[in-house]
Design a protein around this nucleic acid. Sequence first.
DNA 1: GGAATGCTTCGGCCCAGACCGAAACTTTAG
DNA 2: CTAAAGTTTCGGTCTGGGCCGAAGCATTCC
Lengths: 227, 227
Amino acid sequence: MRHGPDIAPIAAIIGDPARAAMLVALMDGRALTAGELAHEAGVTPQTASGHLNKMTDAGLLVVRKQGRHRYVALAGDEVGQVLEALMGVAAATGHGRTRTGPKEPALRAARVCYDHLAGEQAVALLRGLIDQGAILDHGDTLELTDMGTARFAAFGIDLAILRKSRRPVCRACLDWSERRFHLGGSLGAAVLTQIYAKGWAKREDGSRVVTFTDQGMQAFSDAFGIN
Amino acid sequence: MRHGPDIAPIAAIIGDPARAAMLVALMDGRALTAGELAHEAGVTPQTASGHLNKMTDAGLLVVRKQGRHRYVALAGDEVGQVLEALMGVAAATGHGRTRTGPKEPALRAARVCYDHLAGEQAVALLRGLIDQGAILDHGDTLELTDMGTARFAAFGIDLAILRKSRRPVCRACLDWSERRFHLGGSLGAAVLTQIYAKGWAKREDGSRVVTFTDQGMQAFSDAFGIN
DNA sequence: GGAATGCTTCGGCCCAGACCGAAACTTTAG
DNA sequence: CTAAAGTTTCGGTCTGGGCCGAAGCATTCC
């Protein structure tokens, strides 16, 4: 502990099986109630309550009380990124039977990563945007071109609004199943929102899987120049 | 625990203060002996031995026995990336006094990240390489151009050798003090090696700080088109 | 109003695991 | 060969913390 922040307390919090299960359950970006998380982790509500207190105190979660429910969500996409990174190491170092990613093919194809799209489709999306010249990757951050801004405006996303937030608009997020980058940040979140709004895809209940309709997949590919 | 690898055991291992101290001490990329790590973590050798066994079993460390010493190093740059990511969250969520990065200005300017350069200088380096057209950022990975290959050859780095290893040559590594990307991978490591070899800079003992000489800084800036 | 639901606090049990002392083992030094 | 240094294994102690039962607040429903 010569310098830099102390990572042990944070890692210790993630290191408990019940808490890790809760965090993973929250990785789809939804806000869940304390009771749902207790069931998810396989512990009683009073045990879960203690865990949630610890995680909010540590700044990993944010809470919103609403009626008699307590809705909990990940505190930010930074937390989600750490969880994905840990999954990468856990998968790589996992005792022998190293599976490259999720078992279910559906999960590998398209899933939710915190609040944006991940998986094969997401990787293809970013690749298509770069090939089209809508996004430049300038080393430190992804950079949206004017052409890209216009394209997203046509897609129904107003970049001016996104830029007002402190959250980075474009962010390269490492996909632990594909081992490639996909589009994160507020723009990545907005794209997923639009995909839902247009009815191209919907989220499977109780899972991170995102299922595209046939027409949705076609429209998605056309819109972003995939293959 | 619906799907995906189990992150709790890995996080639990990092979550112990003594083990976290050892891992952080190893982040400068050197291989340290078991005794040195015991001292670093403030525990007795026999306690450290147990910790090292756990971490090697988990795949976080690699060991090389040499004489009566046991040299230990991080198992790969993936592990280093997780540690840096955890530092980012620990710094961001750390009780109020959020410092953006290392306190010491020297540490912020240039330091070692696993086995390559990090800090302001490293970020400037990658920026310069991209501006020069030596490296293209193609979304998923950084891509070295032919021009870049020639430039590095002139710098004394043989890319053909680097490409033989399974380790990625170019890798974008997120700098937790600068919050920007710098050059990692085997090429990043080779650059740092050459900087040492040319006498442009040297590592401070017992610290991650890298100190450039005046001429070294000048030569470094000239070589990579910084500012 | 009473009853049900969701969540929290309190108290106590219990176990994993971090720690060290002592001693053995291995390699280098003299 | 003896001595010393580095490391490991064994045995035992002890504390931190995860867990649940019971009870106590809120909020909503009837």
